[in-house]
Design a protein around this nucleic acid. Structure first.
Length: 772
DNA sequence: TCGGTTCAGAGTATT
DNA sequence: TCTGAACCGA
């Protein structure tokens, strides 16, 4: 055990060995957070304070959960398989599977991912004849999820106008549809398990007594429902150990509520608040930049990172004329890094929004530098995979109309829209699922639908006793999917993905410790016993409902969409958004596009607290770097087909100048009043130095491409009217240019005329005279 | 059922 | 500018 605690610093040690009282650990970036969390678990178990069975540890991502399990197995000779360590959704799913009857769910309930949910909502809106102009499916989806994440059912949502009232009705109708079809969405997993515990006193008391210790990772990312779920599970007796960093809270936009940290401290009367501030990742200058930046935020819990690794190199700053030149500079710099012996995979290029990757990818591709972009479609989200899964789901649960509609005519079986409309009418009339309505149908359509029903029946019979992998293989073939893609010109990739699905099933069985020969439809423990019997209080008890390999695999496919990066393992430069970089670290990091309007993003500035979240995002970005950090921005950028002119990000000017090394001449900062778009001090604008003009030799090749020349020319014309310049207009009087958009005849400027307000003026129309 | 055209919209994202 | 979705004609 002394081994376990070796090499922990004072604060880490204090956190790991805290007495059994509620604790909040403020863990700064790179301070060994995961280590503390896992060592705490190992310590609790190895000192006999709790059995592996008596603790619950929860994370947000499968990756984090896996990491915790892996590290734990390395520390303790313990079988982690049965332990309640997982994601919020994974654990909620586990509980609902075991107590499905008490939770009011069929034992075959399926999980809808975001895609499935949207499809279900579209279907609902069509069935109800809702005008999807007024009620776009995406808005309904957002409304439903936001309500569920607040812990509210439709009946609990206050409708204060016609629009909200209709939304609430749609929410209720959506929930009814889900219940009818035996499906639950992500938010529903948590809400349903919360309701289960809330209503069922026996179960609640049982789990409250069982879980003596509850440990929570990334606490700053919890939403209202997750916090309530934790509180309910903890009851009066469990010990909570929450780890988080308010400075790294970057998910408010998806419901995360940092205030949960303060609420936790207050409501649980947390006596132990420990700050982990020693950073083991970055060198001093990088940390000092991060600290200086985040100090501009208010309402922090307060934390300052430090290191004993030395100050290291200065932070490099680069300004370019165009986004293409920024990318070109990046290429040269990466080349130099690699020439010095750095590895490409230790270089990360970060950006605020995905659209920025294109220019960078283009430059990297043209110069033959291997790169890898994070984000995009993941394995289980691919259309062909979802088709295959839909067949499997239909075997499990024929009432799953979503799965039915996905494959009833795929591959094509001549079952068109009209047939399905008739079927839908029949189902509605009979109050049953589409599948169940097939026998009630007459006419020519009945034949084709009947054949499909027979196909499903045949597939079910054929795969009845098969192990999971054989079942998948059988289904992708006999459903006609393979044949369909074989006939398709570009179907080869899809066929490979379908074959990969068989491997994924095999890998899943291995990971879960399920024998390869176990029939897919058999309860895993072999005990079908009393599925969901109310008398069985514990999910792990022998008589509790057992999940079949097939059901487990389908849940896995929904809860873990799989990898989304190609070329794993190859030595490639890593491209990703700042959000995607959270939790990762690299020797060298480029933060690109540091421009007002982009980072901080313009949309965020209007949001309450938006700017502070952007600043935290910048903080996360900076703290990804171990040794070398580059910050870059461009004067112009192609956005939505138009050249945009922007000033450098305020975040650059919030960093201590003495820590920065400008690779291009440093220009005066933009006046703060410009950023607000308003303000008293705008007289000062006229005296601002002109933005740096394009100079030959700015780029490393010494030549400008055609596109770059055109952009540069446009820029030169734009300079005549530059941001910050004072201008006069015949009617509106004097004002200051605060924005420029477009070029040539399309060029428009936004002018702040003070009392007359902000106006957009087309340069080809409006007469604007420079002043001063 | 396909391929083409047209149109709107373009922030970050896990489960 | 570019993408994805929706729509229409063969």
């Amino acid at each position: 055990m002394s081994n376990l605690l070796a090499h922990l610093n004072e604060q880490q040690l204090a956190a790991v060995t805290l007495p059994p009282q509620h604790a909040l650990i403020l863990a700064g970036a790179g301070s060994g957070k995961t280590r503390v969390l896992t060592t705490r678990i190992a310590w609790l178990i190895s000192t006999g304070q709790v059995s592996p069975h008596g603790l619950l540890a929860v994370t947000f991502t499968n990756k984090a959960a896996r990491e915790m399990l892996t590290r734990l197995s390395g520390m303790l000779p313990v079988n982690t398989r049965g332990m309640w360590i997982g994601t919020f959704h994974g654990l909620a799913n586990r509980m609902l599977r075991a107590h499905h009857r008490d939770a009011g769910l069929p034992h075959t309930f399926q999980i809808l991912d975001a895609q499935d949910q949207l499809a279900a909502i579209k279907r609902l809106l069509r069935a109800l004849n809702v005008d999807d102009e007024k009620f776009p499916p995406k808005n309904v989806q957002h409304f439903v999820n936001a309500a569920k994440e607040e812990g509210r059912r439709a009946k609990d949502v206050e409708a204060w106008d016609d629009y909200t009232r209709r939304m609430v009705e749609l929410y209720a109708a959506y929930d009814e549809q889900c219940q009818r079809e035996g499906v639950v969405d992500f938010a529903e997993l948590l809400l349903r398990s919360h309701e289960l515990l809330e209503r069922n006193q026996l179960l609640r008391e049982h789990y409250q007594a069982r879980f003596r210790h509850i440990l929570v990772d990334e606490f700053q990312d919890t939403n209202a429902l997750q916090y309530r779920w934790l509180k309910l599970l903890a009851g009066e007796s469990a010990v909570m150990f929450a780890v988080g960093d308010d400075d790294q809270s970057i998910y408010a936009f998806r419901g995360a509520n940092v205030a949960n940290m303060a609420a936790f401290e207050r409501e649980f009367r947390v006596a132990n608040l420990i700050k982990l501030e020693q950073n083991y990742r970055s060198q001093g200058n990088i940390l000092d930049c991060a600290n200086a930046l985040i100090a501009h935020n208010s309402r922090r819990l307060g934390k300052n990172l430090w290191t004993d690794a030395g100050e290291g190199e200065p932070v490099r700053v680069h300004e370019s004329m165009t986004d293409a030149q920024e990318a070109q500079w990046l290429v040269e710099e990466i080349r130099a890094l690699v020439a010095e012996g750095g590895s490409r995979s230790e270089v990360a290029v970060l950006y605020r929004s995905n659209a920025q990757s294109r220019v960078i990818e283009h430059a990297l591709f043209s110069s033959g530098i291997a790169y890898r972009v994070y984000g995009g479609l993941r394995f289980f989200e691919r259309a062909e995979i979802k088709h295959a899964l839909a067949y499997m789901r239909l075997l499990e649960n024929p009432d799953d109309d979503g799965a039915f509609l996905r494959v009833v005519n795929f591959p094509a079986r001549g079952i068109g829209a009209r047939t399905l409309e008739a079927l839908q009418d029949a189902a509605r009339a009979g109050g049953c699922s589409l599948f169940a309505a097939i026998p009630t149908l007459g006419g020519a359509a009945a034949g084709k639908l009947g054949a499909f029903a027979q196909l499903v029946g045949r597939l079910r019979a054929e795969t009845q006793a098969m192990p999971l992998t054989d079942m998948v293989e059988h289904l992708i073939d006999r459903s006609g999917l393979l044949g369909h893609y074989r006939a398709e010109r570009e179907g080869q990739d899809r066929i490979e993905n379908l074959r990969e699905l068989v491997n994924a099933a095999a890998a899943f069985l291995a990971e879960e410790g399920i024998g390869r020969d176990v029939p897919a439809n058999l309860g895993v423990s072999g005990v079908q016993g009393a599925p969901g019997d109310s008398a069985v209080l514990d999910a792990d008890a022998p008589g509790a409902a057992r999940i079949t390999p097939l059901a487990a695999f389908l849940a896995h496919a929904s809860l873990e969409a799989g990898e989304n990066q190609a070329g794993e393992g190859s030595d490639a430069v890593q491209l990703m958004t700042v959000h995607a970089a959270k939790g990762l670290e690299f020797d060298a990091v480029f933060i690109t596009g540091l421009e007002e309007g982009l980072f901080p993003h313009e949309n965020s500035i209007a949001e309450p607290e938006g700017l502070e979240e952007e600043r935290r995002l910048m903080y996360v970005a900076i703290t990804r770097a171990r040794r070398r950090l580059y910050l870059s921005f461009s004067q112009t950028r192609m956005l939505h087909g138009q050249t945009r002119y922007s000033l450098r990000s305020r975040f650059l000017d919030e960093l201590p100048p003495e820590l920065l090394k400008w690779l291009t001449p440093r220009q005066p900062a933009a006046p703060a009043a410009y950023r607000e778009g308003w303000g008293g001090a705008w007289e000062g604008f006229g005296r601002q130095g002109a933005p740096r003009r394009a100079r030959a030799g700015d780029d490393d090749t010494g030549r400008l491409s055609g596109a770059e020349q055109r952009a540069a020319q446009r820029f030169d014309r734009g300079v005549a009217f530059r941001v910050g310049q004072s201008v006069a207009h015949a009617r509106f009087g004097e004002g200051v240019i605060v924005g420029i958009e477009g070029s040539g005849d399309d060029a428009r400027v936004q002018v702040n005329f003070g009392r007359e307000g902000l106006k957009w003026l087309a340069l080809s129309v409006a007469r604007l005279e420079p002043v001063g």
